[in-house]
Design a protein around this nucleic acid. Structure first.
Lengths: 219, 219
DNA sequence: GAGCAGGAAATCGCACACGATATGATGTGG
DNA sequence: CCACATCATATCGTGTGCGATTTCCTGCTC
């Protein structure tokens, strides 16, 4: 622990991401301070940072609470992520080593297994790992940070809004394979960007269609 | 002034954006505190927020300094902005009223005047206003915040790296008009997104080409 | 003169204390 | 019974003070 502010930040963010502090949960400074024997100041500072990142809302003189996302936020995040990840994937394409691509292929194979085992939790984790492995090689630190943030946001939203489309996972694995083929073949930048964007948009559209069929408004 | 933290945040950010505190400028807590009769705590909190937004770098136990962007940051930001603004413009298209579109047209006309007057400052301001007017109508708060941040980042970077391409402004005005035509004609979402993205990428490519011709590495 | 130990100065990090503010409960007039 | 002023309580906001850490300077050793 370099300093307490970082410790508080990590603790809060961890608890928001893992659901311990759900949407709307009040974060009371004194309370956190008493529980941890850390004064309110590091807590307060960590909350400022979380606020700027969009995880917490602070109302002056009233307090902080964990951000709550409305029903449309999942769709909006996916829509944005499609563009960001399209770009990052195309940028990463020429940076990925053969070993990394092999890793990605392995993950995709594991996804097939998880699919056969009806293990959606594992599937979701692998999916994120797969894409994270790729876009983390994009030579653009800022873009990577944005992507990490949006992915985390998706995870939190998913807990409250059950987003799912039957059969989509199978297609997804196929699209992953096709994407890797493009990258290995040294395909054109725009081609890879479009494929990666399309991949995310396909999920978004599948889920939207399914939600509509179930009579649930999503946006 | 609701509270001092917000005041400090606004002051710091303003001075970073207007260049008073240039890249690398050290932000010493005690010093700011003494100058303003505000204790270090609000300063420190405002810096946490600025750090999360990417304007300031804080090194534990050492201090904060205004972020410095390397030569490639302008290009990376434009590259990202192209995608974000493409999306936002397409989203905004159906939201824009006739009055707002008329405003946008007027701004574009003013740009022609500024162009004739060789007034690059005014040109740049109008250009940002033009795009801001449009993308602020996108029904996605988070996306708008990201865009505002990236545009500000551009402004700061521009101060250190003089980015320019002769003749590009003329084309830009033409492309603006074409973009407005598409929007008014109720063109397809993808068409507008592509046009808006292309518009930004054209600037990026023009500047890159010009920089290369001048022998200046940009990326 | 290079390298390292020791110490001074600058600055950060954080606890504590108390004033300021918001919110909800209580009471009063109509 | 409702509207509104009053007050109690919870919680935030921030000034002050001091210990902790880093940095840099100095001087000793070889």
């Amino acid at each position: 622990m370099a300093n307490r502010t970082d410790f508080c930040y990590a603790l809060l963010k961890g608890r928001i991401l893992d659901g311990t502090y759900g949407p709307g949960h009040r974060l009371v400074l004194d309370q956190l301070g008493r529980e941890t024997k850390i004064s309110t100041i590091p807590w307060r500072e960590s909350m400022r940072r979380l606020e700027a990142e969009g995880w917490v809302e602070i109302i002056p003189n009233v307090g902080a609470r964990v951000a709550t996302f409305d029903a449309g936020e999942w769709a909006r995040t996916m829509r944005l992520l499609a563009r960001l990840e399209g770009l990052a994937t195309a940028l990463a394409a020429t940076e990925l080593t053969a070993a990394e691509l092999a890793d990605a292929r392995r993950m995709n194979t594991e996804m097939t297994e998880a699919l056969a085992d009806f293990d959606p939790m594992r599937l979701s984790k692998l999916n994120r790992q797969f894409h994270t492995l790729i876009f983390h090689r994009a030579p653009d630190r800022h873009l990577i940070d944005l992507l990490d943030n949006e992915w985390s946001r998706l995870d939190v939203i998913r807990r409250s809004a059950f987003t799912h489309a039957p059969g989509r996972a199978v297609e997804s694995v196929t699209e992953h394979a096709a994407l890797l083929d493009l990258i290995e073949a040294g395909a054109d930048f725009d081609l890879i960007e479009t494929a990666a964007r399309r991949h995310k948009l396909n999920t978004l559209e599948a889920v939207t269609r399914h939600a509509e069929a179930m009579g649930t408004a999503l946006a």
